[in-house]
Lab assay of single mutants.
Amino acid sequence: APTVVALYDYTANRSDELTIHRGDIIRVFFKDNEDWWYGSIGKGQEGYFPANHVASE
């Protein structure tokens, strides 16, 4: 899976979202739409995150 790096912190608001912190490396499983992508950090943490909070490595 491609990876991206978090540019900003984001705290999940729902159970299907992913909390990310600046500098996190996120594996992107799919891009649901322009605004929300689905991916994982490490083991067990996965969910939707805002695409405008990340950039290609």
Results as ranks from 00 to 15, higher is better:
P2W: 15
I41N: 15
A1R: 05
G23V: 01
G39W: 06
F29E: 14
N13R: 14
V5M: 13
K31D: 08
A12C: 00
I41S: 13
T3I: 07
G23L: 00
R14K: 15
G39A: 00
R27S: 12
T3G: 05
S15K: 14
S15W: 08
Y48K: 07
L7P: 02
Y8R: 14
D32L: 12
E46K: 13
A12H: 01
R22T: 15
K31Q: 13
N13G: 10
A6R: 01
K43L: 11
N33M: 06
N13E: 14
S56Q: 12
D24N: 04
E46H: 12
N13C: 13
T3N: 08
G42M: 06
D16R: 09
A6S: 03
D24Y: 06
V5C: 06
T3Y: 05
G47W: 01
K31M: 08
V5K: 14
E17Q: 14
I41W: 01
E17P: 00
L18Y: 07
F29P: 00
N13H: 10
E34F: 04
E57T: 08
G47Q: 00
G23A: 02
G39D: 00
P2H: 15
S40V: 04
G39T: 00
K31H: 13
V28R: 01
L18M: 15
D16V: 07
S56W: 11
V28S: 02
I26P: 06
V4E: 02
S56F: 11
F49E: 00
R14Q: 13
N33I: 04
N33T: 12
Y48D: 01
R14D: 14
V4W: 04
I26A: 02
G44N: 11
L7Q: 12
G42K: 12
Y10T: 04
A12P: 10
I25M: 10
F29G: 06
I26F: 05
Y10H: 10
G42E: 13
E46P: 13
W37T: 08
I26C: 04
Q45G: 07
F30H: 12
D16G: 12
A55P: 03
D24C: 01
G44M: 11
R27W: 09
T11V: 10
Q45V: 15
I25P: 05
S15Y: 09
A1M: 09
R14L: 09
L18T: 02
E17T: 02
A51G: 03
V4M: 07
E34T: 11
G42I: 09
H21R: 14
D32I: 08
E17G: 06
V54M: 03
T3L: 08
G47K: 00
E46S: 10
S15T: 11
Y48T: 00
K31I: 08
R22P: 08
G44C: 09
Y8D: 09
R27Q: 12
N52P: 03
W37C: 06
S56E: 13
S56D: 12
R22I: 08
K43W: 09
A51E: 03
A55H: 15
I20S: 01
T19I: 04
N13L: 13
E46D: 12
I25G: 02
F30W: 09
D16E: 15
I20G: 03
E57A: 06
S40C: 12
K43M: 08
P50K: 04
V28M: 02
H21I: 08
N52E: 06
Y8T: 10
N33R: 11
S56N: 14
E46N: 04
K43C: 12
G39N: 03
R22A: 11
G42S: 10
P50N: 06
H53M: 12
L7W: 00
F49G: 01
D32A: 13
A12I: 03
D24A: 05
G23H: 01
P50H: 03
W36T: 04
F29V: 14
Y48F: 08
W37E: 00
H21F: 09
F49K: 00
L18G: 01
P2C: 14
I20E: 07
G42T: 07
